[in-house]
Nucleic acid binder design. Sequence first.
DNA 1: CAGCTTTGGCAATCGGAGGA
DNA 2: TCCTCCGATTGCCAAAGCTG
Length: 451
Amino acid sequence: MIEEIINKNGKEYLKVELIQITQKNKKFYISKISAKRFLKIYTVEPAEYDIERQANFASSFEDDREYYEHLMNNDKERINKKSFQRPSNDTRVSEIKNFLNTNEIGLFPNSIIVTCDLLNDKIGECNIAFNEVDSFENRPKSAYLEEIDNNIFLYIPYQKDSVLVIDGQHRLLGLKAASKEVTEDYELIITFIIGFDRSIVANLFYTINYTQKSVNKSVLYHLMGEFSREIDKMAFMHGTIKILNEIEESALYKRIKMLGNVPKSLSNEVRKQMTISQAFLIDYLIGYISKEAKNSIHQPIFYYYYKSENMRIEIIQFLLKYFDSIREALPEQWDNVDEYILTKTVGLGACIKLLPFLYVKMFIDEYQMDPKKIVQINVNTLKNHLKGIETINFSKSGEYGSVGSAGSLNKLKKQLIENIDFFQADNYEDFLRVFKENYLSKYKKWLTKYL
DNA sequence: CAGCTTTGGCAATCGGAGGA
DNA sequence: TCCTCCGATTGCCAAAGCTG
C-alpha cells in the first residue's frame, strides 16, 4: 500500500492509499500507516480542530441524549471542550508500553479508528486529482480524498492535529512511550470514518467506548494460550490449568470453569462442583513464574523451573501435590461446595497466596536451598506442614463466606499464616517482619542468580 | 520523594436457580 | 419461556505501603 510524504505548494502531506469497506450501505476506509508518521499527525482533542463545525458538533449532543447526559453528569468541563476522548489512564498506558517493549508478540492487530475533516465536503467532489485542487489555505488541517478509477487516496496535512482519534488513544500513548526500536518499523491499521456528520461520529464513539462489552477474561486467556506459537507464560499457564482440570489424580479434577462458565452438557453433579474459574487461577498463579514479581512479597517461586523448558513439568507436579495436600487436610471442606468456600475464589485464592510463604520457608529451612530437592517433596510432608489449617472456619456462613473480594481473600490468607503451626506466627505482622528479615532477603539473593 | 504495588471496600455485571 | 433474586466474579478506586 502506498504511503509517502508529498509536497504541494510548499506544504507537506501524507499520502495514503485507502481500501473501501461497505457495511449496511455505508462506506468507510482502512489503511496502513507507519506508527512513526501517525504519531506526528494525530490528536485526541477536537477542541480547536475545526471551528466551523463546532456548532454542529454541539447540537449533536442533543440528538444523542445518552452521550450528552453522560458528559453532563461526569464532567462539566469536558462539555465545554467537547472532547471525544476519556482522560487517559496512566497505568493503562504504562501497561501498554511494557507490553510493546517486552513482549515478543506485542502486536495491535485491531485498528485505530480515526476521523478527519475533508475538504471534499465543501466541494463535493472526489474525482479531481489532488494536484489540480487549489490550496487549502482557509482550512489548513483538512484532508483531501481522491477517488479516481477505483484508486482511493487520502492526502492528510503532515502536521499535528490533522487526524482525530476516536478509538485507540491508549494504544497510541503506549506506542509513544515505547522504545525507539519498537516504533521504528511498527505499522498500524487505521480505520478512517470520514465524510459523515459529526453527530454520527459522536454516536459511534459513544457506542465503542461506553457500551462495548469486554471479552470474558477466561475466554481471552484460553485463546491466548491455544493460539500463541511461543510457549510463553500464558500458554504455559493455560496448559497447567488444563492439566489440573483434566487428570483424574488432580484435586481440581473437573473443578475448573474452563471458559468462565459451566458447559450445559455435563451432569448436574459435575457442574455443581465447578467452583473456580480459569481466569482467576491464571491471575493468581502467573506471578509465580514472572520475574517481574521479583520484588513482591509473593515471590516468583517457580521462575527457576519455568526458565528451563524441561523443568517446567516440576511446576505442574508441585501444584498438583499442593492442592492435593489441602484436599487431604480438609476432605470435607474440599468436596462439600454447598457448605464451604475452600475451593471457591476466596478460599482457594488465599491458599494460592499462602504458597510462596510455605515454599520459601521450606526451601530455606529444610531443603538447603536446592530447587531440585524441594520438588521431590511428597503430599504427606506438605500436608503435615499445613497442620493447623483445620482450625479455620471455611464455612459459607463464616467470616469469609459472604463477600468475594481481594480484601476478604487477604484476610483469610493472614489467618492461614497465623493458624498453621509451621509458620510459628502469633500474628501476621510479626511473622511478616521475621519472614522478610530471615527468608525473603535470602531467597531474593538466591533467585537473582537466575533472573 | 516519585513511581510503583498492594490492599480493602464497594459497585457493576454475569450466570444459574427457582418461581410465575 | 420470562423474570427476579442471589452469589460469584470482575472492575474500579483511593489509601497505604514499598523500593530505588
